[in-house]
Design a protein around this nucleic acid. Structure first.
Lengths: 349, 349
DNA sequence: GTTAGCACTCAACCACAGAGAGTGCTAACA
DNA sequence: TGTTAGCACTCTCTGTGGTTGAGTGCTAAC
């Protein structure tokens, strides 16, 4: 990318000024504004000339002839890659986040929820988080707890404090002893497995090996399958959805609806975040860089999180392309750091 | 209420026409429209006279001098109490609902979610449901499942298939045997209790009676408390939130925001629904009849549900005061009937 | 008691002018 | 040669005034 040569220092400074200004006014910014507000020691005329160049190169655009310039997606991209100054959060802010993240009896879900809420309130945008996949969490044990004569609670414990349980009704009776047998059989078969190997053959084997009463194995295994599905099915947490209404770009009710509809669809969000999950690093997708059509006017800042090895969920911030990238990046990075630590702690236990 | 005398048959017919018309056009309805569309055999002039009376009595109002009339809250109230024709759902519609509600391995949460989705899609409004209180579900047993050396899963089973479980980390060791002892102690103490009697004295008693290692009882009881809190804390399910955007009354972005903010607050919704929970019957709150300020321009149709005795949750439909009351009432009533049946079935097992 | 007719009201729509912000271009300047 | 002042030009935005049309209330006739 010959970008470094394409723009001299002065052009970079002007582009930065335009983006910075536009990010917090949402108004096209003119040459005079820049020459006054930002101390570049240049007259508006000079800046006009440079802006004409920047426009020709595609970094900025004019909504109409007599308006100032707004950054294009390419402009934002350059800004994010080369110009943005990432400032650490203020000390009190970091402290506030740390305090909120410290959990006494944390389960992963709670923790993520808190992290998401924090980022949403610190950035003022919509924040989404996804829990890790099943692959990240091999099954540790399966327990079966008798509840009433014909009902048992199936509990699946995976590594990392992940638990899911579900009640199931049995067709036949199940003695205390048989319960035990079935549970340890299933535990043994599934322990360490990360993939759902709950095939028909497993059921057949269970029925043959254990000689249990009819109408017991199938419901239990079905239930187990559902539990594992729930663990593996990445859960989506979202906070600050209505934050987007604060921005003038969504004053148009039609656009607002589109975005709302997008955010309402958990599947879509999940798909969106899944593409991130594998990578740990911070990623910024600006406007048209997004594949999803309704996201074309939005930016998405994401990062994976996890224990530093292979298990990753993802967090993302969604806002207008005119996004306070600096603030978003520093917030999300800091929260992610703490999140990683907490998870590591939880896994170790 | 001298309403029956206040309005003669003709006035009632005209009021009904106005409400019916306004409900599906959202446009102020004029005298000519009524004399043409609805077959009352009256000229527009006559209707104008009657409308002047209805306005004086407060049933309808004029947005401005040269506009038609729109119903007032009082008008809607009269309509709902005296004029609305509740029509049963079509046979295919009922069948569709029945099919969706039939659950194979139903847990209450799933069932409610499905019911809510159904009503939202049948009415086109926002639908909210609340799970029943704890009082409805006495604790049956407490189970403690060992997971790893220092971690156990606490499971609370209440009547009616309600289960909640939560992982807790222990400070000290807990043998298999002690686990058993503690669980049966807690089960015994809490069984049948509907109120959380998890006082400090209980912990003290447990520690004295059972002579367990340090750092075990307190975390477990804390965890138990949390489980019970979760069961008792009415959960809110909502569907079709964005449906409201379809209505012109929310074209104003400011109003839309207000409503969104209202709906986002689970606590507020919970409070709203809780006032309904105790009563089983259908209730309609129109506009200003609502206590909550942001609800003053909305209507809320609610009904309790349960097993016919004392345990009630609630379902509600939220929409503009200009709501298709007939359709909403028939939908909600039908779903509630099925829901009651399902719950009764679940409780019996 | 009902209806036709008429004058009146008022929101909604449109056209148009003026203001203001910002530009591109030219010519002067360092 | 790069920078700047000046100027004509463009285009949005705002406010104003006139017109249209729906709907009303009132009066007088049926």
């Amino acid at each position: 990318m010959g970008w470094d040569e394409e723009l001299n220092e002065r052009k970079k400074a002007i582009l930065r000024s335009i983006v910075d200004d536009y990010i917090h006014t949402a108004l096209p910014v003119g040459s005079r504004t820049i020459s006054r507000k930002h101390e570049l020691g240049l007259s508006s005329a000079t800046i006009r000339n440079e802006m004409a160049d920047l426009e020709e190169l595609g970094y900025i655009a004019q909504p109409h002839t007599s308006a100032g310039r707004i950054p294009s997606d390419k402009g934002y991209r350059f800004y994010v890659d080369n110009l943005v100054n990432i400032q650490d959060l203020a000390n009190e802010e970091m402290q506030q986040i740390r305090k909120s993240m410290e959990s006494k009896m944390g389960e992963l879900g709670d923790l993520l929820k808190r992290a998401t809420t924090l980022i949403a309130s610190f950035t003022g945008y919509t924040t989404v988080a996804m829990t890790p996949h099943l692959e990240a969490y091999p099954v540790r044990t399966v327990q079966i707890v008798p509840v009433s004569p014909h009902r048992v609670l199936v509990v699946v414990v995976a590594t990392g404090g992940i638990v899911n349980s579900r009640m199931v009704r049995l067709e036949g009776d199940l003695s205390e002893e048989d319960t035990q047998k079935l549970a340890s059989f299933l535990s043994q078969k599934l322990s360490g497995k990360t993939v759902t190997e709950l095939t028909v053959s497993l059921m057949a084997e269970a029925e043959k090996t254990l000689s249990l009463p009819d109408g017991v194995v199938i419901p239990v295994v079905e239930c187990l399958r559902e539990c594992i599905r729930r663990i593996s099915h990445s859960e989506i947490v979202m906070e600050g959805m209505t934050n987007l209404f604060n921005f003038p770009e969504f004053n148009d009710l039609l656009k607002a609806r589109d975005v709302m509809d997008l955010l309402r669809e958990e599947d879509v969000l999940a798909a969106l975040m899944q593409t991130v999950g594998k990578k740990a690093n911070l990623e910024v997708r600006i406007g048209s860089e997004n594949k999803l059509v309704p996201m074309r006017e939005l930016s998405l800042v994401t990062t994976g999180y996890g224990n530093g090895q292979n298990q990753y969920g993802a967090i993302g911030v969604i806002g207008p392309t005119r996004m306070a990238y600096s603030r978003v990046i520093s917030s999300i990075e800091y929260v992610r750091k703490l999140l990683d630590q907490e998870i590591l702690r939880m896994m170790r236990e």
